[in-house]
Design a binder for these strands. Sequence first.
DNA 1: TATACAATATATTGCGCAATATATTGTATA
DNA 2: TATACAATATATTGCGCAATATATTGTATA
Lengths: 162, 162
Amino acid sequence: MPASTDRAADLDDISFLGRLSEALSQTIEDQTRELFDAAGIVIPVRSCSLLTALRQAGEASAAELARTLGQSHQLVIQKCPALIRLGLITQHPDPADARRKLFRLTEKGQAQMAMQDRYSEEISEVYRRLFEETGDVHAMILKTLRALKERPLRERTPPQSR
Amino acid sequence: MPASTDRAADLDDISFLGRLSEALSQTIEDQTRELFDAAGIVIPVRSCSLLTALRQAGEASAAELARTLGQSHQLVIQKCPALIRLGLITQHPDPADARRKLFRLTEKGQAQMAMQDRYSEEISEVYRRLFEETGDVHAMILKTLRALKERPLRERTPPQSR
DNA sequence: TATACAATATATTGCGCAATATATTGTATA
DNA sequence: TATACAATATATTGCGCAATATATTGTATA
């Protein structure tokens, strides 16, 4: 019984929204993992986008992937060993540039992505229906994020008289 | 330039909502940290609720705090050393039960919480105005979370024909 | 060509969390 | 009282991320 979700709101005024959105993120990851497990998909949920980008590129270095994903290349490099261990990708030195190592999906990786594809549409549809039920969280989070980047909490708080 | 927020949506259909809500959580934590820094509040943002619970209890063991917060007691125990190092709380053995150690706010901890209080109302107000601007994300995330706990993704996905 | 700089990959450290295992102490029950 | 169990605190390991530092290689410029 998690229940933390409900209690969180009353207990802590300052970061209730932060913890709530984290709970949503965690719940979605967990439930996606559950779905993948049931379907025999071994892809780490948090590496889906990396593999999608890699599939589209065909072949790419960590730095390229990082730029595509908007993540740090350190993070990409940190994830890759696990994906290699899972047999989803391989790593080759770039013959044209000794600094770079190129990643590529293996056959298994491609097969796994194909399995993921079959669920991808399904899941989009699930979310669409969910949003009809509860409202478009996606759009609203995006709007909130943009508002906060535009004008952060700091600027929205009047200076305190001490 | 993060920008990952925008690109995330197109790249990965399966967990776009997960990463978006995580981005919101992270943004809020970062901006709260920024606010605290500017105000001279040393409280770790993620320990606000712990300190709030402790203040209300006056004195409590890790297990009690964990129950109040809906977190694991391991997590509470892991956070406490940092709070002790910051001089915000102290730890005493429970004279009545040698298994337990009781935590209590120090004077500095109370002063810091008082500083946080001055911002607490402000921030609630900021969120209230933000929600007027962008809609009530809080309520909508809560609704989504409840819908997902009620009926997880797994159950919402029709069985695949393989 | 030599030198500075850019790009790339990588190691290390630390945070926050989850999961697991374990030691200690208290409590209930045979 | 003895024994099993519950409650509590804690250590250890691992994941995902950020931040920092560093080594290697390529590129541009003096």
